[in-house]
Design a protein around this nucleic acid. Structure first.
Lengths: 336, 336
DNA sequence: ATGAAAGCGCTAACAG
DNA sequence: CTGTTAGCGCTTTCAT
């Protein structure tokens, strides 16, 4: 059995209350008593029991994180960034993956609720299916949404300038001379994709180009799913000269598909992806990408949560972090 | 304030104990009483408080995971695999990164202890500095070590056949005709590296080759660190014709270094890396690698922990998962 | 400055 | 089948 405050109380002959004050560094304790307690604590190898503490204080010092897939470098970067700000403050990160399924999101939220996390950081699965989030927001638990927007929710949201990013990517290709540009994405129910495509469309229309419906292909959110969508996108649109991928999974699937189909990048097709990751630099060819400030999304979210927990006031709301086009070698002018 | 069992008891006119039994599905409860309770629970939107439950049962339904860096695809894959087995069983995953620092490992373990996790999965930082792990193992908390071995510890360990992998990688290069082979690694204090290098040395000696000291370069465990080590390895050993990288971070650093130094893979130098990841397939050239059964490491660890928690008996000890050489295009015969 | 005691929400004997 | 009661380990008034 682990040693408790009572053990120390017995050992020192003091009361539990005094010992608690000495250990917890609050209230009045005489220097002598404190020293006795510290000594006894060390001798008995006392470790405070957080569960009991939580029970009494209502704080767990745990923050929940719900993302699509913690294995996705985009999300694991965010997880690390969050961790880096909360761990020094005594908090721990509980992570779970939804695979972008609303049901899983709901049960995850429920579980975190029951486990009494002090705050929740969430990349919401669906713009349309979000009533459960409304209830969440009404609860007292601090929450911040990352990467994706839910309309009409009075909550902190930290996202990238996806519309701008989509526009910039498309514009870059258009300037290069491309006129038939595909877009590989997963569900539009994620605002990130929706906005990126909106940006892409804005650019197309600015250049007077009429988008063909088959240019935008929506597929599963795994690399395997993206591969299939990539094959179908490329197969159905032989005349396409460039493709934008909405994230690194989509890019991987697309690149793999192109490779298998004997389509050479950028000779046959130019490619831009969102989600800048190291390996883009090492790809053949190095992939031009729209970089988000991924770590900053995590850091900001964590800081907001902490302020929120501590009851510090700040203006709650939507923050859009700018994106940055990183030009590498996966885009050239079209051949024809 | 959230509704408690007491509220339901009051609402239904039953006792708290009966309500608890109905909710917790244990012990005898009449059908009528159960229905009343369920109805009241729904009406009052009751959510069980896990903290209180933990307090009473001593179980938190939380599993701790301590790795070098959750952002590393190798570790995030493991995290996901663990998650996939424990979440359906009602457990949650608390993750933390050590940056391979012993001090951080110690404080992380302490914190998890205080938070009363039901089990701990750990990629230990150091073979030599592991006394704190001895204490840990003596405690009652279920623990399994992953990816790395600590000698003389009576604990579950799930690792890859690193010696075999190192041997196979080196042998492959030797068969190709290479005679001067570098090895880029981080600290030898991690058994994984130690064993991989041992395998490499075994292969060298089998082929009657005397290793030069400058061939093995140890560097920081980040991509940036690996880049520097890569530059120095390549700079100091102009005659080297092949390099083995001990993990994907090392490979990234090495490849980036080679690129900047105008060294072309595989024309000037052949490269093999451990840690097979998707992007190896998309690299220029696609990287030959020693793949570990990464997901399985996580799954097994999780299953062990669960069995352990449940007091199910099984033979505790070391499991070595076989590695697999995946040949792509980053190795050729040396030019000279 | 210290101690006594109540209470956080739930579980688990035990008695009935 | 149900109710009573005693904790789990810590915090936190309220007295002293």
């Amino acid at each position: 059995m682990a040693t408790t405050l009572d053990d120390i109380a017995k050992e020192t002959g003091l009361s539990r209350a005094t010992v608690a004050r000495a250990i917890g560094k609050y209230g009045y304790v005489s220097k002598k008593a404190r020293e006795k307690v510290i000594a006894a604590a060390k001798k008995l190898n006392y470790k405070p029991n957080y569960i009991a503490k939580s029970m009494a204080t209502g704080e767990t010092k745990n923050i929940g994180l719900i993302v699509g897939d913690i294995q996705n470098p985009f999300f694991s970067t965010i997880a690390r960034a969050i961790s880096d700000v909360i761990v020094p403050e005594g908090y721990s990160l509980i992570v779970t993956s939804t695979d972008e399924k609303v049901e899983v999101e709901k049960t995850s939220i429920d579980r975190f609720f029951q486990k009494q996390v002090d705050g929740l950081i969430l990349a919401p699965v669906s713009r349309s299916n979000s009533d459960h989030l409304k209830d969440l927001v009404k609860s007292e638990i601090p929450i911040v949404l990352i990467d994706r927007i839910i309309e009409g929710l009075d909550v902190d949201m930290i996202v990238s300038d996806d519309l701008g990013g989509g526009f910039e990517a498309a514009q870059y290709l258009l300037e290069l001379g491309h006129r038939r540009i595909g877009f590989l994405s997963d569900t539009l129910d994620i605002s990130t994709n929706y906005d990126r495509i909106a940006g892409y469309r804005e650019a197309l229309s600015k250049y007077g180009i009429e988008e063909k419906q088959s240019w935008v292909k929506l597929g599963g959110f795994t690399i395997e799913g993206a591969y299939k969508s990539g094959v179908s996108l490329l197969g159905q649109n032989k005349d396409i000269t460039a493709v934008i991928a909405t994230n690194n999974y989509m890019a991987a699937g697309l690149l793999l598909a192109a490779k298998d189909m004997g389509i050479v990048v950028p000779r046959d097709i130019s490619v831009i992806s969102f989600d800048d990751i190291v390996w883009f630099d090492l790809c053949n060819p190095p992939i031009t990408s729209v970089a988000q400030d991924t770590r900053e999304i995590g850091s900001m979210a964590a800081k907001r949560i902490l302020m929120n927990i501590r009851g510090q006031r700040y203006e709650k709301g939507l923050t859009r972090l700018p994106t940055r086009l990183i030009i590498r070698e996966s885009c050239t002018s079209p051949r024809d």
